[in-house]
Design a protein around this nucleic acid. Sequence first.
RNA 1: GUCUCCGUAGCUCAGCUGGUAGAGCAGCUGACUCUUAAUCAGCGGGUCACAGGUUCGAAUCCUGUCGGGGACACCA
Length: 507
Amino acid sequence: MHEQEALSEQERLRREARQQLEAMGVDPYPPGDFEVTHWSADIVSGFEANEQAFAGMTVAVAGRIMARRIMGGASFCTLQDAKGRIQIYLKRDDLMQDGNASLYEVVWKKLLDLGDIIGVSGEVFRTRTGEISIHARTLKLLSKALRPLPVVKEKEGQLYDEVTDPEFRYRQRYVDLIINPESRRVFLQRSQIVQSMRSFLLQRGYLEVETPILQPIYGGALARPFVTHHHALDMKLYLRIANELYLKRLIVGGLNGVFEFAKDFRNEGMDRYHNPEFTMLELYVAFKDYVWMMDLVEEMLEQVVMELHGSTQVTVGSQRIDFRRPWPRLPLLDALAQRTGRQIADMDDAALRATAREFGVSLDETAGRGKIIDELFSTLCEPHLIQPTFITDYPVEMSPLARRHRSRPGLVERFEVICNGKELCNAFTELNDPLDQRRRFEEQLELGRRGDPEAMQLDEDFLRALEYGMPPTAGVGIGIDRLVMLLANAPAIQDVIFFPHLRPEKH
RNA sequence: GUCUCCGUAGCUCAGCUGGUAGAGCAGCUGACUCUUAAUCAGCGGGUCACAGGUUCGAAUCCUGUCGGGGACACCA
């Protein structure tokens, strides 16, 4: 076996232990018929709440050996299961089998290791030093670990030798989850956040749907797609960059409100805020507009935060962010006017460029009016918006799927929520005029011809759907990963995605 | 993509301006029947990311490659 030579000393020893176990008739990977009666954390909290009921109760737990303290004929072991940790007390005299001490002396002391998964049954009690523990009467190996687990020790909340290497944590998330409670916390909160949002939307009668990930025409956002190939049809397919156009087709189809927690894929650079695949909630509701949608978003996020933290406030880094309604609503041009002291709205492109230069905002030569305004806003205003704020009414050039503003020419009925200096969601009154939509697509095609790799494609079928008539509709997209980063106070997107994209590991 | 920092034992890290690799934890052997970062005594464990180069001699200096972090660019 050529892999043998690469094994470390500890790995070799564990393989030998496995063989010895088998030789003794102990199956290192027995079938899962060990009946777990309790979770560690429930025993501990139950005992604390009602000592009389729990003291002496026989329980069966299963989990991973995280620490061992062997003192000859007696031992203590820290067992970790899905809900927490509990101490196990093992005594040789109590684990005798027909006068044979080998379960304790050989299996437990010699052949089991940190990281092994065991099942234990025994009575709950409190040790002399006060720790709630299980006095083991049976001990069963449930799965032998052949690799040593990094050992993180802890005293009075202080961690020692904590594994902090991000590469290790992301590549071997399974280990990260075992040894890093902070990592578990973030992912549990992610799940809670998604559940809160889902029940909020279901409660209002909206329908959770699924739409294609493989799309012949990509649309719904400005981004470069991943391309793949369908062999049987011999055609190019794209991994979706958004599901917007499909959800709007469903609104045409008469569904009143639809949402999807969608994995989207964008072929762009990766950093702390960008993973090539990420999750977006999109929601579309018929007979509503973007003002109504602001109310809904406010209400939903306030409730999500409340359910997560028991308060509307979140601590993010050094900032304290309060999601209590209502949030300020500020037109984008007003925000810029406040920052610059200029009336941006009245400026022509040349004056805009001059303003950008004056405030040190660098611009692409080809940037049009919308792009310049967007650039000014994101460098001058966005970083200063810490508390959740609605920024409304964006330039039409930047928003090919949004309805023109009912009273402000050149703008669309769109808002973003900016929070902690970053976009949290993007919404508009949807464009449902098929002829206007066709013109906007054609403008995108022109951008594409001029070499913009992120310009949209023209989707004839989507236009056909609009021609049948789409009710006035409000839509919103919320980046789930970034929302979780914010609410769970995680510094990087890689901390909220179980298996973030990394370059392949070299062997 | 550019710049920059980093890669040493299973884990956390030390190793100065070049002299042939070290600690704690984990592991192994032994002692110990209420410990908790258990303790005590002893012992093993390394392709110093990889490939070249300079040198009598490279973990250390140089170049390149791979991987990761940070910043910028691009981007929602």
